[in-house]
Nucleic acid binder design. Structure first.
Length: 492
RNA sequence: CGGGAGGUAGUUCAGCCCGGUAGAAUACCUGGUUUGGGACCAGGGGGUCGCAGGUUCGAAUCCUGUCCUCCCGACCA
């Protein structure tokens, strides 16, 4: 059938693409590197967005919106940030098209409509936002500013992959301004905790919280905190970042405030973001060869009900039973769909909803009505059981939580099993190829060694875990002394 | 951006080498029979062969350019 998907063992990349396309999360578009997020995929994003948005608001943040375009002169103000993103910027140079005299009916860029100053399509919004904050901040009384924006950004990547790395993507970016270094640092860590909470408890993907090495740091940050997740093929994926920006942007944009003692100082900053890339992480963390497996808390559909009947009379009886069941499920906030489309037969629907990762499927036929039961199938374990109609809604509610927990436990067991303490270079190299996952290894702390290891093995330091155990040892590459292990992995 | 593969019906693909009226499966439409793991029969509709040039009496097929996608690499706050 056309809907068959490549197995993970045959071709992991193809498996991932098949899931995204055939699970109807997204599609390719006519625009290089840009994808269409389809309704089912967007529903998933909306659920994720809604949860995160509430978490941000519960921690005191408010939403705002800043322009898509950044004048080049503003973009280049914070030099490190500008340099870091320069290679992947889309730039608007003109503002008008005109009829092409050489090609009837076609258009050309009007050379007389060249912009005085080019506009950079934002790859991130620190520049335009800090240029704005300059006008908002005079006194410590104006601080803190705790603003988030939901937006699209553009990064002209050389090689793109659905959700994992697209030229345009959706994200949120928080940009906060503080009166003290400590307050900004606290904010950075607080938002990292929010991300970890969300990814683990809603997406059921376990993460390691840590801090990036200077090499891997966000351009313009003093410190980059991150959450790192592990995919089923043993590669790591950066799921979210929270940056302590120090006073870098305040200095670049001259944002000063008067403190209580009427002394002028630069404002302290943070920024933090997660993107539609999280959907890629979600797909790769839980899904199997039958299709998507979505965690109940953010699944667009949590329960699908498939009727099995012969003739209108049976259908009528099943309809009545299902409608009653839906009346009890909906008030519980359970997202349920009754698929009584007569054009598709039950077997087709079973395969289709497995492909789309719906956590629970119920099948109800005349036989079941007689016995006052339904057939219940779990997507995660693919187990089928016959359960009584009596108390079914409560049972489903409970089961959704159980599935959520089970998905997390399974991913956690896999992740924990794939953090390996490694003490020799040979072991490091061979385990990267055979087992994959995180290698907890000693490192001498230098950028040169980090770079050399990356060159030789394609493994990077994903992070130095927060509250990392201090333990004396020797760098796996250079043999120089080291005070702690750091996590290496190949990454997306 | 370098190497490789590809773009033909909604979808997956054959046809191309060797130029001569555009095919299959599936999906879709109509009617009927069906319905507990991707139903069956009969009939029917649907494609400027990615786009733009060129060669030719004639181009899906040969040539040039260009756009898009996939895989590997480089790159990746």
């Amino acid at each position: 059938m056309s809907k068959e998907i490549t197995s993970r063992s045959t071709d992991y990349s193809q498996w991932y693409n098949d899931l995204v396309i055939k699970g109807e999360l997204a599609d390719y578009s006519a625009v290089r590197g840009c994808m269409v997020i389809k309704p089912y995929g967007f529903a998933l994003w909306e659920n994720m967005r809604d949860v995160l948005d509430k978490m941000f608001k519960d921690t005191g943040h408010v939403n705002a919106y800043f322009p898509l375009f950044v004048p080049k002169s503003l973009f280049e103000a914070e030099e490190k940030n500008a340099e870091g993103f320069a290679k992947e910027c889309a730039i608007v140079t003109h503002y008008r098209l005109k009829a092409d005299p050489d090609r009837p009916g076609k258009l050309m860029v009007d050379p007389t409509a060249k912009l005085e100053e080019e506009l950079v399509v934002r790859p991130t919004s620190e520049a335009i936002i800090w240029n704005t904050y300059k006008n908002w901040i005079q006194s410590y009384r104006d601080l803190p500013i705790l603003v988030n924006q939901w937006a699209n950004v553009v990064r002209w990547e050389m090689r793109t992959r659905l959700f994992l790395r697209t030229a345009e993507f959706l994200w949120q970016e928080g940009h906060t301004a503080h009166a003290t270094r400590q307050e900004a640092l606290d904010e950075t860590v607080k938002m990292l905790e929010v991300y970890a909470d969300f990814v683990e408890n809603y997406m059921a993907v376990p993460v390691i919280k840590g801090v990036k090495t200077p090499q891997e740091r966000f351009a313009g940050a003093e410190d980059t905190y991150c959450i790192e997740a592990l995919m089923q093929d043993g590669k790591a994926l950066q799921a979210g970042t929270s940056h302590f920006l120090g006073q870098n942007f305040a200095k670049a944009f001259e944002v000063k405030f008067s403190d209580r003692d009427n002394k002028l100082d630069y404002v302290w900053a943070t920024s933090w973001g997660v993107s539609t890339r999280l959907i890629g992480a979600l797909v790769m963390a839980h899904s199997d060869d039958e299709g998507l497996v979505l965690p109940p808390r953010i699944a667009p559909l949590q329960v699908v009900i498939v009727p099995i009947y012969k003739g209108d009379e049976q259908k009528g009886a099943i309809d009545a039973c299902v409608h009653e069941l839906m009346q009890s499920l909906k008030p519980m906030g359970i997202r349920v769909k009754y698929d009584d489309n007569d054009n598709a037969r039950p077997g087709w629907k079973f395969a289709e909803y497995e492909m789309k990762g719906v956590p629970i499927r119920l099948a109800i036929g005349a036989r079941d009505l007689e016995n006052k039961v339904v057939e219940l199938a779990r997507r995660d374990t693919r187990e089928k059981s016959t359960v009584p109609l009596e108390g079914l809604a409560e049972r489903i509610q409970q089961l959704l939580e159980e599935i959520q927990q089970q998905l997390f436990n399974k991913a956690l067991a896999y992740r924990n099993d794939h953090i390996t303490d490694v003490d020799t270079w040979d072991q490091f190299v061979s385990l990267l190829d055979t087992k994959g996952g995180f290698m907890a290894a000693h490192w001498d702390g230098t950028a040169e060694t980090e770079e050399a290891i990356k060159e030789k093995t394609k493994a990077t330091i994903r992070c130095i875990p927060l509250d990392n155990k201090q333990e004396a040892g020797y760098c796996i590459l250079t043999g120089k002394p080291s005070a702690q292990r750091v996590l290496f992995a190949r990454a997306y």
